[in-house]
């Protein structure tokens, strides 16, 4: 079986990012999964067991003392070195900002074909096929890469399951970076979120609020329902632009694209740009005062009514059922 590289992102504090599981799962479906990690010298060993548990049969530790000082430079060199040494048929990265930065530069460097934001990958006749969900899920497009390895960035939260655990072999290599071609990192601010809510990108349930909530103070209703459902909190662009909630929670064309089991839209009219980010949800529930709101066109269950009376009653009814 061909080697398939999975680029593992690591946080500023050395934690493996959540995307590692889905990347190794996808890699295992295509060939021999090899985890590639850029680490500071001597620090990568502690990650090996964790990556083996996620299915990595080999762990390639690329050590650089420039990690964290140059923007994605050490990570790019890590994958370049691993690709040269392991002749992979495929290279998988997260479709995060960091993942796309590395994938784009690597594709040019290797002269390799690139498919971004894949929601699935599979092997057919020895060729890697990547599925993309285009125009907010209106189309499903399957692509292959002709000539050389396929570089694919994988949408966060799109691939489920977990590869069987393995006891990985470990390769360590030292990589040098070219500071002249890299931006320099000045500061990293890790937001200290105390939220226990699930992350928006891969949450199975999401409650989103729109302009109809009226104010930042009243937006708390969205959070109350989210907590009652164990859901993540999202928002329409209108709610973000009105300052009800930070932009990181924006669902839609220019925000996060989500595909949860349940999507509850509160006071969201359902502009086409918002729908593009959530219409592949399995079940859509909408509550809106305006009976003509376009969100009702795609809702499995729509309530024409005031969110401030319907939602408290819903929370109460859920609590009554739980007892």
């Amino acid at each position: 079986m061909s080697n398939i590289l999975a680029f593992i992102e690591v946080s500023n504090t050395g934690q493996i990012r959540k995307s590692a599981r889905s990347l190794l799962t996808a890699a295992a479906a295509l060939g021999t999964p090899v985890a590639v990690v850029a680490t500071a010298p001597g620090t990568g060993g502690s990650l090996v067991d964790e990556l083996g548990a996620l299915g990595a049969e080999q762990v390639y530790l690329a050590e650089s003392d420039q990690l964290g000082t140059l923007l994605v430079a050490a990570q790019l060199e890590a994958l370049t070195a691993a690709a040269a040494e392991l002749a992979p048929a495929g290279i998988l990265l997260s479709n995060s900002i960091e993942g796309r930065d590395i994938a784009g530069r690597l594709a040019v460097r290797l002269g390799a074909g690139l498919v971004v934001d894949a929601v699935d990958v599979r092997l057919e006749g020895g060729q890697i096929l990547a599925t993309q969900s285009v125009f907010g899920g209106a189309y499903t497009v399957e692509s292959a890469v002709d000539g050389g390895p396929a570089i694919v960035t994988v949408r966060q939260g799109a691939i489920e399951g977990q590869a069987p655990a393995a006891t990985p072999t470990v390769t360590a290599a030292s990589v040098a970076t070219n500071a002249a071609h890299s931006a320099v990192i000045d500061a990293v601010n890790d937001a200290t979120t105390t939220s226990t809510r699930p992350e928006l990108r891969d949450a199975p349930k999401i409650v989103s609020g729109g302009r109809g909530l009226g104010s930042k103070e009243k937006f708390v209703l969205v959070e109350q329902l989210a907590d009652a459902l164990g859901a993540a909190v999202g928002a329409s662009r209108a709610a973000v632009d009105s300052g009800f909630i930070p932009q990181t929670s924006q669902v839609g064309q220019t925000g996060v694209t989500v595909s949860p089991q349940l999507y509850v839209a509160l006071g969201i009219s359902g502009a086409i740009q918002h729908r593009a980010g959530m219409q592949t949800a399995k079940t859509i529930v909408a509550i809106n005062k305006d009976a003509d709101a376009p969100i009702f066109e795609i809702a499995d269950f729509g309530v024409v009514g005031d969110v401030f009376t319907v939602v408290p009653q819903l929370i109460e009814a859920m609590a009554a059922r739980a007892n």
């Binding site: 002269g111 399957e142 390895p149 009976a291 009702f296 795609i298 729509g302 309530v303 109460e316 009814a317």
Partner: peptide, 28 residues
């Protein structure tokens, strides 16, 4: 230079509206 080549393109059937109720005090 490696190229990505589109193999198939499938249009997803449009989503249709389900049940829609008007709140008369019991919608929650």
């Amino acid at each position: 230079v490696g190229r990505s080549v589109i193999k198939t393109t499938i249009e997803r059937p449009a989503r249709t509206a389900g049940r829609k109720i008007i709140d008369e005090g019991n919608a929650g």
